[in-house]
Amino acid sequence: MAEQQTGDLLKTPLYDLHLELGAKMVPFAGYEMPVQYPLGVKKEHLQTREQAGLFDVSHMGQVLLTGEGAAAMLESLVPVDIIDLPAGKQRYALFTNNEGGILDDLMVTNYGDCLYVVVNAACKAQDIAHMRAHLTDGVELTELNDRALVALQGPKAAEALSRLAPEVAEMVFMDSRRMKIDGVDCFVSRSGYTGEDGFEISIPSSDAVRLTRLMLDQPEVEAIGLGARDSLRLESGLCLYGHDIDTTTTPIEASLIWAISKSRRADGARAGGFPGAEIVLGQIASKDCARKRVGLIGEGRAPVREGTELFDADGNNIGRVTSGTFGPSASASIAMGYVATAFSPLETVVYAEVRGKKLPMTVSRMPFVEQRYYRG
């Protein structure tokens, strides 16, 4: 069973299971997706931090690139090394445009005989068109429209999944393997979008419901919706495309310099070589960009939402919030947003205008809670 469509919205292979589990469904990136289950967003968030949560992320785009020049082709579109990505490893990457803006963020795995690429749902069509437009001789792109994608996240995720696939216990953060889970050929990476240890598992659509039920049958695991996924990733300082990063933000403005491989920054044979490199590398060299993405912590419990304007002590507008909530694990009002670079140093106090009141917020380190990826 591949993707279904009713009206204007697509359905993932797990749609009927979500309804059976009592999910509240909402439109998201062109799909009907579960925003929460009867447990509720806060309890789902804490369940993932304390035990394990299972997320349907089948709306994401899954692609295979094959052919001898696949790594070189993809490396020409991103500021990270793909050619030297070891087999069995995954890497975070960014598609940039000619102005250095971010077209999307993505995950790339080298399986030895192919590259497996996962892109964001809202950018799926444009990303695939972007890659197709740059295909070189002998490189082929295959859309994997007949696969589901689930994320099993949390400190008990490995314990739960290893009962079904003992091999996963050998993996560390950003490892990726093709393996059988209960006889089904899956792609499994030890990674995720919550700041916790966990796995992302690509499953043939025909087996998706059965394998998902097996994972949900594990005593540590509950179904988790998009609401908790958002608060978990924000506590972990992770960007949401279209909100915290977009075509108007460069990786340097977005505080993502770590997502530019060192060999692509320095003088040398592989420096630059990606769209907008001159602008991005210029910002690195000059240490000069007008604004920066920062973390913010409020003094009270009131959430400071996306779009809230930020001001200095004299009432001058200096930026805006791009994501904000009350963090159930951080036990604080947390946000990220862009401020004029002069206001980006840690401990700087800025003011968020909420319902006519100026609420103080302090520029703070991200993540807001400790990331607990398993590195061995």
Rank of each mutant, 00 (worst) to 15 (best):
M1C: 02
A2C: 05
Q4K: 11
Q5E: 15
D8A: 15
L9H: 11
L14H: 02
Y15S: 08
H18Y: 11
L21N: 04
M60T: 02
G69D: 14
L94E: 06
N97V: 04
E99M: 10
L106Q: 00
Y116F: 14
A122Y: 07
M131K: 02
R132T: 15
A133H: 11
H134N: 09
T142M: 09
T142P: 04
E143D: 04
L152K: 14
S162R: 14
L164D: 04
M171W: 08
F173V: 05
M179T: 12
V184W: 03
S189H: 06
Y193E: 09
T194N: 13
V209Y: 10
R213C: 10
L216P: 01
Q218M: 15
A228T: 00
G237W: 04
C239M: 09
G242E: 06
D246A: 09
T250R: 02
E253I: 04
E253L: 06
I257H: 14
R265N: 03
V280E: 00
L281R: 12
G282N: 01
D288K: 13
A290Y: 01
A290C: 09
R291S: 11
I297Y: 07
D314I: 00
N316Y: 09
N316T: 07
N316E: 14
G327D: 12
S329G: 13
M336A: 03
L346S: 15
V349P: 02
V349Q: 11
A352I: 06
L359V: 13
M361V: 09
R365M: 08
R375H: 10
